[in-house]
Design a binder for these strands. Sequence first.
DNA 1: TACATGTACGTGTATCTACACTTATCTACG
DNA 2: CGTAGATAAGTGTAGATACACGTACATGTA
Lengths: 176, 176
Amino acid sequence: MTPDPALLETTRCLCLASRRAARTITREFDQALRPHGLRATQFTLLAALHLAGPKSIGELAELLSADRTTLTRNLAVAEQHDWVVLRAAPGDARSRIAAIKHRGTRALAAALPAWRETQRGLGEKIGAPAAASLRKLAGGPCTAAPSSSKPERIPRKRLSKSRAAIRHQTNHPVNR
Amino acid sequence: MTPDPALLETTRCLCLASRRAARTITREFDQALRPHGLRATQFTLLAALHLAGPKSIGELAELLSADRTTLTRNLAVAEQHDWVVLRAAPGDARSRIAAIKHRGTRALAAALPAWRETQRGLGEKIGAPAAASLRKLAGGPCTAAPSSSKPERIPRKRLSKSRAAIRHQTNHPVNR
DNA sequence: TACATGTACGTGTATCTACACTTATCTACG
DNA sequence: CGTAGATAAGTGTAGATACACGTACATGTA
């Protein structure tokens, strides 16, 4: 099987690059925040809520450039930790407003030094230009990225294998 | 609740920036690859296997700067799609070698034009300097990022609430 | 050779991410 | 007022990510 030379260009994939960078950076922050009981995602969520004040789920999703349903799940986690509270919007029964709670603020404050140190170290390691570039890529400080128009939904091809529990069954001799 | 001004700096969080960028970019690639039945992660995985040839799970994890157990799961998905095959290493019964299969190569080839177009468009949109910076951040083309020393494992704080099925129970009036 | 140690990997659990679909509510217009 | 269309959100499903822990195998040393 001769590797297609045309595939060489895939080593420059920007998606891979962004994901690798995010994985590596996230691991570092998660490590640093671990003693304080929250991860990077939850830290970000709490910080955003603290700074921006109570926000609906949709607003929060746009603020963080995440899918709305992702925010629903992430907020559920924060709610279980008693970091945030979700209540119906006064004027619109469809909307739910998320607000940070006392415990959330406390967790945030406790984790802040570790975050700051990690942020400082990483900024130093990658250099100011790379940091600036990364922020620019993300769409500025907590500013919604330009989502422009909704792309047409193309259904994803699925396995015929039904949704039969992803058993990850293996034939590995180990652990059998 | 007055927002702590000290938290303003968290809007410059490099972790948030990298994750936001990765989310946005991944969505774009996933959209483009959807008609071909694979996502960015699987595309990357197949491309890496095609270019690098058969590789053990550990090697692959390092190559892609991902956790080894993550690769185990991702490879299981690829295996279910019949894109790759996993077999025991000849010299070492502990190790499993992943190799791309015919169907994997075909899927890769079919998706390549869409990938290329997305890559081109994104590169144009963010500009060459940002693209270069992103690749540098990721650690170069499929070169393992410097993992240096293993950090000490600090156990994560957990909810006392046991692992009681993440029911995401809500008291939202909607959908009841 | 027997055993201590290290290595490669799988599994359980939790979280993060997003698409497809559905429900409830709101708004505009007749 | 009534209803069609728009809007906000929840749920089912699937995949991506990684930590904690356990198992099987390899290797070096007494």
